[in-house]
């Protein structure tokens, strides 16, 4: 299953990259969200998969029993998801605002800050 998920992570990344290269602001921002998903999935898959044994300590035990999922990447991904959410939320609103102010949906028209007319 690792192989499938690895390919999936690759496909999500590829889609994200493809979207980042599109003109439309909306697609670019979707690309950003997908890239975040890909990175999280990457982190998840790369540290191995364990089915149906979450890192929880059952009543009566002092430690996690059996071959359980590694809690470390889970904790990292949790943090990464939340951070990613914060940053993406900002980016979404930024795009909305930019669209309102600049009145464009095209990435290609965002060239004002690099023209050397200054």
């Amino acid at each position: 299953m690792i192989s499938i998920l690895a390919i999936l992570a690759g496909l999500i990344t590829a889609t994200a990259v493809y979207l980042l290269l599109r003109k439309s602001l909306v697609r670019v921002i979707i690309g950003i969200v997908l890239l975040g998903h890909a990175a999280n999935l990457f982190l998840f898959v790369i540290s191995g998969l364990v089915k149906a044994n979450p890192p929880l300590i059952n009543a009566g035990n002092d430690t996690v029993t059996g071959v359980s999922a590694d809690p470390v990447p889970q904790a990292l991904i949790l943090t990464a998801i939340v951070i990613g959410f914060g940053v993406q939320a900002f980016a979404i609103v930024l795009f909305k605002k930019a669209h309102e102010k600049l009145n464009t949906d095209s990435m290609d028209s965002l060239t004002a800050t690099d023209s050397s007319r200054g």
Partner: peptide
């Protein structure tokens, strides 16, 4: 206006970098 545009470029490229860091 310029700020928003500059920020978009800044944000996008830096988010890519964050994903790779992870």
């Amino acid at each position: 206006k310029e700020q928003l545009e500059g920020t978009i470029k800044y944000v996008l490229l830096n988010l890519v970098s964050s994903a790779f860091f992870l």
